[in-house]
Simulated assay, not measured.
Amino acid sequence: MDCRDPLVDERSTFGNWELDTILGKKGTDPVLLAADERKKRKRHLVKIRAKTADAVAEGLAKLREFYGAQFSQVFRTITCDNGSEFARLQEAVPEAKVYYAHPYAPWERGTNEKQNALVRYFIPKGTDMTNLSEEDVQCVEDWINTLPRKIIGYETPQERFDAALKNLRP
């Protein structure tokens, strides 16, 4: 974290993400991979089979497939915690610069922590995610991304993110 580009901290550039996993019922799988773009506040939720490095890599592969050729422009940096599920993150996303937050410093991934709390409105702690459908997960993601935010001029993260995507080179 000490070497993270100040532009990432300032939220002045697009393509800087925060990653975390959201657990359900203690000791059970699957879990949610949560990815948040720092500037636009866009959130992706991907249901992954477990809280492991392999499962996180599979979840990121789904996002890579979704963005196709634009992936490297959309995911420029990733900041995550020091969980073992992120141990091989640089291998999974070699084109992005990976930063690890300091232990016990959730403010270094503030967007991620705030939006995890929004997920808990729909998926409370202790929920068994086994029967959570892809449609359920998408519904929560859509709600978060279409919620107007004061911090971005009462626009929605989706509106801001879509505008940024239009400015990327093809």
Score class of each variant (00 low, 15 high):
residue 72 S to I: 00
residue 64 R to H: 14
residue 77 T to V: 12
residue 81 D to A: 08
residue 53 A to I: 14
residue 22 I to N: 00
residue 48 I to M: 14
residue 33 L to I: 05
residue 39 K to W: 04
residue 11 R to K: 15
residue 12 S to C: 08
residue 74 V to P: 10
residue 60 L to I: 07
residue 14 F to I: 09
residue 17 W to D: 03
residue 25 K to W: 04
residue 30 P to N: 14
residue 23 L to Q: 04
residue 15 G to T: 06
residue 45 L to W: 02
residue 60 L to K: 09
residue 30 P to F: 07
residue 40 K to F: 03
residue 21 T to R: 06
residue 70 Q to V: 12
residue 37 E to K: 00
residue 45 L to S: 03
residue 83 G to R: 01
residue 21 T to L: 08
residue 51 K to G: 08
residue 47 K to E: 08
residue 25 K to N: 02
residue 23 L to A: 01
residue 56 V to F: 12
residue 24 G to K: 01
residue 64 R to F: 10
residue 64 R to I: 14
residue 41 R to V: 04
residue 25 K to F: 01
residue 57 A to N: 13
residue 24 G to R: 07
residue 78 I to R: 10
residue 19 L to C: 07
residue 15 G to R: 02
residue 52 T to M: 02
residue 40 K to I: 02
residue 50 A to E: 13
residue 18 E to C: 11
residue 45 L to V: 00
residue 17 W to Q: 00
residue 67 Y to V: 05
residue 81 D to M: 11
residue 14 F to E: 04
residue 67 Y to I: 01
residue 42 K to P: 05
residue 55 A to D: 13
residue 33 L to G: 08
residue 53 A to F: 14
residue 35 A to M: 10
residue 27 G to K: 07
residue 46 V to E: 15
residue 43 R to D: 10
residue 52 T to A: 13
residue 60 L to N: 12
residue 71 F to S: 10
residue 60 L to G: 13
residue 63 L to A: 00
residue 34 A to D: 04
residue 40 K to G: 03
residue 51 K to Q: 15
residue 81 D to G: 09
residue 59 G to D: 06
residue 12 S to E: 07
residue 62 K to Y: 15
residue 56 V to S: 13
residue 49 R to S: 15
residue 40 K to E: 10
residue 18 E to F: 10
residue 32 L to E: 04
residue 48 I to D: 07
residue 14 F to P: 02
residue 49 R to A: 10
residue 78 I to F: 13
residue 11 R to Q: 15
residue 66 F to D: 14
residue 27 G to V: 10
residue 74 V to D: 09
residue 62 K to P: 06
residue 47 K to N: 06
residue 77 T to E: 04
residue 49 R to V: 04
residue 23 L to G: 01
residue 16 N to H: 15
residue 28 T to L: 00
residue 83 G to N: 02
residue 76 R to E: 05
residue 71 F to E: 07
residue 79 T to W: 01
residue 69 A to R: 13
residue 80 C to Y: 13
residue 45 L to A: 01
residue 50 A to V: 10
residue 35 A to H: 01
residue 31 V to C: 10
residue 57 A to F: 14
residue 53 A to E: 15
residue 54 D to V: 06
residue 51 K to V: 13
residue 20 D to A: 07
residue 17 W to A: 06
residue 13 T to A: 06
residue 11 R to S: 14
residue 30 P to D: 09
residue 75 F to H: 12
residue 15 G to I: 03
residue 75 F to V: 15
residue 14 F to T: 06
residue 58 E to R: 11
residue 79 T to H: 07
residue 29 D to A: 14
